[in-house]
């Protein structure tokens, strides 16, 4: 259902010097939350605007190619979803739900792909969120590509073993068991590494100060306008 190799490529964080990468994580998070709310409330025209904003942000952040990989990875899932929606609902409603799913996943993806996990943790700690929670979130984001790499390796190895590939669901439990076992191994390594680094003993020091850029404010304003528009129309 998912092209895991493409998903792995899409989820690797690549530091770039773009306005989106330099934007303050808290403001960016607030902007994404506002637009997500707008997406839930909006009608078709505003949904199209939201989708256009997501694509424009991907272009600004220089990750349009990664968005393509992300869409390619989820293409089968989206196709199945689209067929189900068109079977269950009238076309306008089905299209609006599909647009919501697409724009929702894209805006979350653009946020994750353009935000340095350390900067996000730092911003959240500044807001008073405990380090334990921010660090756990940061590690989870960083572990996603590793988990996906294991999933790619396991898929290839098990396909050649004849465990996978002879049907849409056959061998899926074996694949999941392998991925879970591999994840458990990574968890143990991570736990040992964190203990060795005295994680949680004292407050973490961040070297780069976070600044509020013009882009951060501008995107927040635009997204606020979108939310207001979706409430009004």
């Amino acid at each position: 259902m998912l092209d895991i190799a493409a998903l792995q490529r899409a989820f690797i964080f690549r530091p770039k010097d773009t306005p989106l990468h330099r934007a303050h994580p808290t403001l960016k998070l607030a902007g994404t939350a506002l637009m997500f709310t707008a997406m839930l409330l909006a009608d078709m025209p505003i949904l199209i605007i939201i989708l256009a904003i997501c694509i424009a942000e991907a272009q600004i952040g220089g990750i349009l190619r990664d968005v393509f990989f992300f869409l390619r990875a989820t293409a089968r899932f989206l196709t199945v979803l689209a067929i189900l929606l068109f079977l269950l609902y009238m076309p306008p409603r089905a299209i609006s739900i599909l647009l919501r799913v697409l724009s929702g996943t894209l805006m979350i993806y653009v946020f994750v792909a353009t935000t340095n996990p350390s900067n996000l943790a730092q911003a959240l700690e500044d807001l008073g969120i405990p380090e334990l929670i921010t660090m756990a979130g940061q590690l989870a984001i960083r572990v996603i590509p590793l988990m996906l790499k294991d999933a790619v390796d396991a898929t290839e190895a098990l396909t050649l073993r004849g465990v996978l590939g002879r049907g849409p669901l056959r061998g899926l439990i074996d694949l999941l068991a392998v991925i879970v076992a591999s994840a458990e191994k990574r968890r143990m390594f991570l736990e040992e590494a964190m203990k060795a680094k005295f994680f949680g003993v004292s407050k973490r020091t961040y070297l780069d100060p976070l600044t509020i850029t013009k882009y951060s404010v501008a995107q927040l304003l635009v997204k606020t306008v979108i939310l207001v528009a979706s409430l009004c129309f």
Binding site: E156, L160, V178
Partner: peptide, 20 residues
């Protein structure tokens, strides 16, 4: 990959990805 089923076996660097 499907052309190689029954011909090749691949063991990745992480053996956990191969063992079922």
């Amino acid at each position: 990959l499907k052309d190689m089923i029954g011909i090749a076996i691949y063991v990745p660097s992480n053996p956990m990805c191969f063992l079922v």
